[in-house]
Write a protein that binds this DNA or RNA. Structure first.
Lengths: 210, 210
DNA sequence: TTAAATATACCTGTAAATGGGTACAAAAAA
DNA sequence: TTTTTTGTACCCATTTACAGGTATATTTAA
């Protein structure tokens, strides 16, 4: 008899874990190795145990699923990771793939599609749920969503801007020239390809910077 | 024999529906009357069918769970509504209660707590999951988060502002005077208690307006 | 059917942001 | 070690936003 496929779930919503478990156990070949509601517990587990596949949420209490995926693939490169998330940002999808995930599923996926994706991923394919494929194929609508890389200063100033602080206030708080803050502000607008702060803050918020 | 308690689920995530269903059907007294992945289908259903309790997500594709709750209680006041959401904003909790919900549960609730809450709600109590109680009890940390009530126009203009449109552009798009748009903009700033658009957009984003 | 809320429009300043640049020292990466 | 990135600072001109009003017709709700 073939060994069962061991699957782990990392998600901070018990109901999601229950739902996934119910679906997976319909098939005799799947075995729920373990489930976790945070990232570090899962890392501890994976250092001593092996699983074939992990369903990984991105919103975790301790660290992001994106970082967790990177760490996991460093510890156990052969483990297949499927992101299972609510985030529809193109950048999230790209970052997960960048960090070694075998696919990205939105939580609004249908049961049938979910099972298909898991099987395909186990066969070495890269899989995306239907909505995610649309996101990937529409860089125009979803935008130029390359998540910009910000420097420490830029992140710092972005936060202050989002708190309603004006340039001069920020300059005083950080002991900088007003002109310096203006430069950072301009760079932020360019990096986010925003026309003004309103758009800047919207994008930054959607991309999870705030 | 007593009639079973009919429960409906409105949530756009099939996995959540599966998970809830699995948990509820452990108990013989519960019966899953129907489940919906959008609000309007549920409204149609509830106009002809009765259920004792509804588990209601806030993020729905067509209308917000908050508005849906209001409509539902107008149609079927005796139906017990439990919000089942990811949103941790105090204002969301308050609005649901304001609109007649019997409680507010976060999706990270444990299975046992969920069942307890459902039973308590059916017995006429107002129930909150553990994390929600913490949110309610800490108005200081969660702030002055009274979610402002916006008019249609204000919502419309808020969206355009968040897209980086400037006042004059908005005015042209909506066939309004620039001065009118300025007034709406000012009202938005006041309603959100924001110093400038940056803060406005941040708050609006956090409160789920974008 | 009144009263309140909404949508509309205007005025006057001042403050702030934006867009286009340049420049250079320090730190990090190649 | 050279190159690139980051953080710093400056200038100029124009546009936009913000704060403080007032005012009125139209809806909506009490």
């Amino acid at each position: 008899m073939l060994r069962k496929t061991r699957i782990a779930i990392v998600d901070d919503h018990p109901v999601v874990i229950e739902g996934l478990q119910k679906l997976l156990l319909i098939f005799d070949k799947f075995e729920l190795a373990a489930s976790f509601n945070n990232g570090y517990d899962f890392i501890k587990y994976i250092q001593k145990n092996a699983v074939e596949l992990v369903l990984l949420d991105i919103n975790l209490p301790d660290l992001s699923g994106i970082d967790l995926c990177k760490e996991l693939k460093a510890i156990a490169p052969e483990t297949i990771v499927l992101a299972f998330s609510n985030h529809t940002e193109r950048s999230m999808v790209m970052n997960m793939i960048q960090n070694g995930a075998s696919g990205y599923l939105l939580k609004n996926i249908s049961s049938a599609e979910l099972l298909n994706c898991i099987n395909d991923a186990l066969n070495g394919q890269i899989v995306f749920s239907e909505d995610v494929r649309a996101i990937i194929l529409k860089p125009a609508l979803n935008g130029n969503c390359e998540m910009p890389k910000l420097t420490k200063r830029e992140k710092e100033i972005l936060l202050l801007i989002s708190d309603g602080k004006i340039t001069l206030e920020i300059a005083k708080m950080l002991f900088l020239s007003k002109l310096t803050v203006e430069t950072h502000r301009k760079n932020l607008l360019h990096k986010f390809k925003a026309n003004n702060v309103a758009e800047l803050i919207k994008i930054a918020s959607k991309e999870g910077f705030l």
